[in-house]
Every structure is written in structure tokens, then in C-alpha cells.
Write a protein that binds this DNA or RNA. Structure first.
Ligand SMILES: Nc1nc2c(ncn2[C@H]2C[C@H](O)[C@@H](COP(=O)(O)OP(=O)(O)OP(=O)(O)O)O2)c(=O)[nH]1
Ligand SMILES: [Mg+2]
Ligand SMILES: [Mg+2]
Ligand SMILES: [Zn+2]
Length: 585
DNA sequence: GCCGTTTTCGGCCCGACTGTTTTCAGTCG
């Protein structure tokens, strides 16, 4: 079993134990281990083999045993026993808004309800309202919740969620009652997918803000409407598709804003760690302040809060409880790469293949974004569905780039190609054609169904071709749409070190590939990365910002990102590599 | 189930909103 499978199994253990009414702290041990393993940079199997499982925080003797069983046999007897005790319908019932493990257990214990169908019937027969702790309103809400299940949205891509969030932000930000307003939660931490929109406002007069929020256009349902907190379910149109999301609004006093900002930014696990640290200091940390027995510790910024607990500021992207607090203590937090340090981007498409804009339009847009250089990467000849370039058209494009380069002042265009890595790991052009480019991005676009080991060898073979400069979208995954092909990312990253292949952080919000966890792994291994927007239009060029977010979540610094180099440095680097390639032939 | 400059038992983050209650449990953030 791999990390994600082990993580899923432990999460299921947690859910089933909860439904059996187990001790919540015990349940939390499983849930916590599940999360830790899902965010591990290295492979859980390597910990099993090396006997280092116990070194992972939150994994003790019992969990070591269970994880070892999962990794070695793919099975866990304890989980099988739990599954035998808890009907699967109970887990489905948990998805109903407002129904948690206690209520589901009560419904099962008292009315033998073990499916959505039976639950609906019981509600309609008015049996649920009579149970202790239930009532007419709860019964009605359950019925509505069952109907709502079909339209319940899962997670949403960061770019789409940002778009919905900005609509809400614009709705509120100019109200006279609003002093400060900020997007928080996973949006602020720049997670690749977002479950809901978390908005924080400071004000002396919350009521009108709450009112405006719950009556906003597109609100499908008001989930809660209180003095300091409201929740809604909204529908919005983003790029022609309907997006349904929850949104939460917290309103606090302005002097509480930094504490509320820290709280509402999360993550939950980071909050728990920070609050536990406050306890060690004899203090209490919540969304309103940092308080002791008699004293209140005034903080004007988040930085002040960290400082009060003897920690340096921790950037939102790092607040995932993946070691940031320990690193902060040791003074080994990274100085994260910033958007303004990106000098240019590679891997962009034009009308030569499947892009919407010309070379010149793309170059002008890049220049207007403040970039100093732009690299192209249209598709290669065998990718006919995307209008891949024949060697003749390659030469034509190169001539056009030469002309643009002589015309544009203070801006440099690099000649590149997104060259298909064919099924056998060979490249899609002869070496004579490959020698025409300043750089080559190697990407897999076909034959996704290969066995994992074959795919890994295919990519590794391509990385060993001296013409390859960088590897495009390593796994081919599409966020929330398609899993990547089976590939040993660890092996590819290790090979990248050996072959000095740059690994792309594909910044297209549909891809974000490498993901942030493997960025962290790449950092540990000493891999160099390059942030590319994979732009198919001028607007897409701005996607590199999403790649910067991934890099920051992966703890990456300026020096670890190739395209923070200046034009001259890039020029020198690429020309050296090209010389090595052409000399070899 | 995990963990330890309050160490091997007794804690484990803390609060808002709702609906059921008459003082609070459950769910969610
Ligand atoms: N202290 C504390 N804070 C929490 C807890 N649950 C949530 N929070 C805070 C931190 C979260 O980032 C923030 C928003 O909660 P969300 O459930 O919306 O999670 P978040 O935005 O992190 O991720 P998501 O919405 O799932 O993409 O509220 C909790 O149990 N304790
Ligand atoms: Mg959220
Ligand atoms: Mg939320
Ligand atoms: Zn591609």
C-alpha cells in the first residue's frame, strides 16, 4: 500500500470507531495518523522497511503494528472487524449536513436505521422526531439534508474558488461597517483545492454585514446566521460552469482581528499546535486573544502572536503542521520564494500548436507582466491532435522568434518545445531537430495505462537524453478530474538529481503537478524546479502565481527555482547544456 | 492511542450556532 492508501484505511478506522462511540481521543489518534501519512514527503513503506515508523510524531506502538500490516499485506484485521460491525449505510448518513456520529449511532441503535432510504422513511413516518435529542426541526433538516446530498459539492479548484471568493469580497468590502476584510482558510494557505470560502471581517457593527452576506445573490441555503458567524451555501458562475460552495463569515472587533486572522487561516492542526504551545506558556490562545491568568498579551499582527510564543513568523502556506513549528523553533524555516522573484517562464503554447495567441502576443503579455524572458513549448510532431510541429514548422517558428528577439528591447524569448516522451522513452524528434532549441521540456501525453515500473523507466530514459532540460507535468494528473498515471515519483526525483533535469511545477491550476508534497520531497533530495504556467493563451501566463503558491507550500526558496535566474544566467546555463548535448553527438 | 523541562498517568484546542433542552449536547468551524 502507498501513503494515500494507508492514510485512507486509517481514516476509515477513525470514522468507524467514532460510529461505535469510541473514545474521541483514541479516534483522533487514527485521524491524526491518517493526515500525517497523507502529507508525508517520503514513502511510508520505506519507514516500515527501515523500522523508523515510530519516529513519526503521533505514531506509537499500536499504530506501528497496524501500519506495518497495511503496508506488508494490504490488509488490516482490525479494520475488517470494524467493517463487520458498522453497516456501510451509516457512513453515508454522516454526509448529511448536521448529522454526526452520535446522532447516526442513536438512529441505528434505537430505530435500526442503516441506510439513507430507511432514514427517509422513518422521518416521513415521524419516528425520528420522537427520539431523545431529536425533534421536529431536526427531522425536517434531515429530510432536507438527504435531498441536498445530490447537489452537495465536494472540493473546488483554487482558481475557481478564488473567483467565487472575490465576488463575496467585493460584495462586502465597501460597506461602511467593514473595517478590515480578508480571505482565510485554505484559500489563504493556497491549497490546490478548497472546500469552502472563509471570510474574516472586523467591524463595530456586525449585524448589517451578516445580513448582507446571508442575503447575497446566489445564496441557495443559509446554514447558520449568528452574531459573529454565519454560513451560507452559494452558487456562482465561473467560466461558464456553475460552482456550488459553502462560505463562512466571521466578524470580530478590530483589535481581535490578528487573533481571528490566525485562527481562521488555520490549518486546524496548526491551530491546535499553536494553542498547545500557548498552554505550555500558561496562556490561552483563541480567535479573540492571547490571555493569561490576569494579563492580556496585546498583538497588532500575526507576527506578534508568534513572537509572544517565541516563534518567528510562519507564512500561511506553511501552516499545515508538517514540521513548521519545529523548524521555527530551530530557526530553520525557509525564506520562501516570492512571485516578484520570477524572472520569466518556460513551457507556453502558441497558435503554432494548440494555443490561442501568437508568439508576439504572448511575448508582449509576458513583458507587460514584468517578466524579463519567455520560453515557448509548443507540442511536438507526433501529437497531431494538438497540432504538433513538424521539423519544418519548428524552423519557421525559430526564425520568427529570431526576428522578434531582434525587435523587442529588454526582453528575451527562448526557443523551446514540449517534446513528447514516446512510449519507449525516446523523444519525438531527431537529435538534429532537438539541437535547434535552447531547451526541451519532456512530457508524457500518451500511453497512460502502462504499468508503474514501465512508466517510470520510460521517463527515466527520457531524462537521460542529453537534450532534455526539464520534465513537464510529472504525473499528468488533472486536479479533481483525473489521477496521474502510475509512476514512481521518488525514483524520478532521484534521477533528476543525477541527470540535472529540472522538474517542472506545472502552474496551470488544473494541473499543479508536481504537487506541494512532492515539492517538499524534491527540496529534501536537492532537485531544482522550474515554475511554468503551461499557458495556452495570454491570460494563462499569469498562472505562474499558482505555481509560486505550490512552491511555497513545498518550502521552496528562490535558489531552488530555476526561473528566478536572470536572463543572462539562464542564457549561460542553457547554452552550457546545449553545448554538452551537441558535443556528445 | 499518544505523549512527556509539570514525565509513565492524566491530560489531549477552543468556541459559535442550533435545537433540544431548563442547562446542554451535538455538530461544525
Ligand atoms: N482551533 C481550531 N480551529 C479550527 C478548527 N476547525 C477549523 N478551524 C479553523 C482553521 C481552519 O483553517 C479555519 C477554516 O476551517 P475550514 O473547515 O473551512 O478548513 P480550511 O479552510 O482550512 O480547509 P477547507 O475549507 O477544507 O479547504 O477554521 C478546530 O477544530 N479548531
Ligand atoms: Mg475553508
Ligand atoms: Mg470554513
Ligand atoms: Zn503537456
Amino acid at each position: 500500500m502507498d501513503n494515500q492508501q494507508v492514510s485512507a484505511a486509517l481514516a476509515e478506522v477513525g470514522t468507524l470507531m467514532e460510529l461505535l462511540g469510541e473514545n474521541p481521543f483514541k479516534v483522533n489518534a487514527y485521524v491524526n495518523a491518517s493526515r500525517t501519512i497523507s502529507q508525508l514527503t517520503d514513502e511510508i513503506s520505506s519507514h516500515v522497511n527501515k523500522g523508523t515508523l515510530g519516529e513519526i510524531a503521533g505514531i506509537g506502538a499500536t499504530l506501528q503494528e497496524k501500519i506495518t500490516s497495511l503496508v506488508k499485506t494490504g490488509k488490516l484485521e482490525f479494520l475488517e472487524e470494524l467493517r463487520a460491525k458498522v453497516p456501510p449505510g451509516l457512513v453515508k448518513m454522516l454526509a448529511i449536513q448536521g448529522l454526526g456520529p452520535k446522532k447516526v449511532k442513536a438512529l441505528y441503535d434505537l430505530l435500526q436505521i442503516d441506510s439513507l432510504e430507511k432514514l427517509k422513511i422513518a422521518c416521513n413516518e415521524n419516528k425520528v422526531a420522537d427520539l431523545k435529542g431529536f425533534g421536529a426541526k431536526t427531522q425536517q433538516k434531515i429530510l432536507e439534508g438527504i435531498e441536498f446530498l445530490g447537489s452537495v459539492a465536494g472540493r473546488v479548484r483554487l482558481d475557481e474558488a478564488s473567483s467565487v471568493a472575490n465576488t463575496l469580497l467585493n460584495l462586502l468590502k465597501d460597506m461602511k461597517e467593514v473595517i478590515r476584510i480578508e480571505l482565510c482558510g485554505s484559500l489563504r494557505r493556497r491549497k490546490e483545492t478548497v472546500k469552502d470560502i472563509d471570510v474574516l471581517v472586523s467591524s463595530k457593527n456586525p449585524a448589517p454585514i451578516m445580513e448582507k452576506f446571508v442575503t447575497a445573490s446566489g445564496v441557495i441555503q443559509v446554514l447558520g446566521h449568528g452574531e459573529t458567524k454565519s454560513s451560507i451555501f452559494v452558487e456562482a458562475l465561473v467560466n461558464g460552469s456553475r460552482i456550488k460552495m459553502q462560505a463562512d463569515l466571521r466578524v470580530v472587533k478590530d483589535e481581535e482581528f490578528p487573533f481571528a486572522l490566525a485562527y481562521f487561516t488555520g490549518s486546524k492542526e496548526h491551530n491546535v499546535a499553536m494553542r498547545s504551545r500557548a498552554i505550555e506558556y500558561g496562556l490561552k490562545l483563541n480567535e479573540y486573544g492571547l490571555t493569561g491568568e490576569k494579563k492580556n498579551i496585546a498583538c497588532k499582527t500575526e507576527e506578534d502572536i508568534y513572537k509572544a510564543l517565541d516563534l518567528p513568523y510562519i507564512a500561511p502556506e506553511l501552516r499545515e503542521d508538517t514540521g513548521e513549528i519545529n523548524a521555527a523553533l530551530k530557526g530553520t524555516l525557509p525564506t520562501l520564494v516570492e512571485s516578484k522573484q520570477i524572472q520569466g517562464v518556460f513551457h507556453n503554447h502558441t497558435t503554432y500548436s494548440d494555443g490561442a495567441n501568437t508568439l508576439e502576443e504572448m511575448a508582449n503579455k509576458a513583458k507587460s507582466l514584468g517578466l524579463k524572458y519567455l520560453g515557448f513549448g509548443d507540442h511536438s510532431q507526433s501529437l497531431t491532435v494538438a497540432n504538433g510541429l513538424s521539423p519544418e514548422r519548428v524552423k519557421k517558428q525559430i526564425a520568427e522568434i529570431d526576428e522578434l528577439n531582434s525587435k523587442m528591447k529588454g526582453f528575451r524569448i527562448f526557443k523551446g518545445i514540449e517534446c513528447d516522451i514516446l512510449a519507449d522513452g525516446s523523444l519525438d524528434y531527431d537529435d538534429e531537430v532537438l539541437a535547434l532549441f535552447d531547451y526541451v521540456v519532456g512530457s508524457v501525453h500518451t500511453h497512460f495505462q502502462m504499468p508503474r515500473e514501465e512508466m517510470t523507466q520510460r521517463i527515466i530514459k527520457a531524462m537521460n537524453h542529453p537534450a532534455i532540460t526539464m520534465l513537464g507535468h510529472l504525473t499528468g494528473r488533472l486536479v479533481l478530474r483525473r489521477d496521474g498515471y502510475a509512476v514512481n515519483q521518488e525514483a524520478v526525483l532521484q534521477e533528476a538529481v543525477k541527470t540535472k533535469t529540472l522538474i517542472e511545477i506545472n502552474a496551470h491550476p488544473m494541473r499543479l503537478d508536481l504537487d506541494w508534497i512532492h515539492c517538499k520531497r524534491a527540496k529534501e533530495l536537492g532537485v531544482k524546479l522550474v515554475i511554468n504556467p503551461d499557458a495556452h493563451s495570454t491570460e494563462d501566463l499569469e498562472y505562474y502565481e499558482y505555481g509560486v503558491s505550490v512552491a511555497r507550500r513545498g518550502w521552496l526558496e528562490k535558489d531552488e527555482i530555476f526561473n528566478t535566474l536572470t536572463t543572462n544566467e539562464v542564457e549561460a546555463y542553457l547554452s552550457d547544456r546545449r553545448k554538452a548535448f551537441t558535443k556528445k553527438k
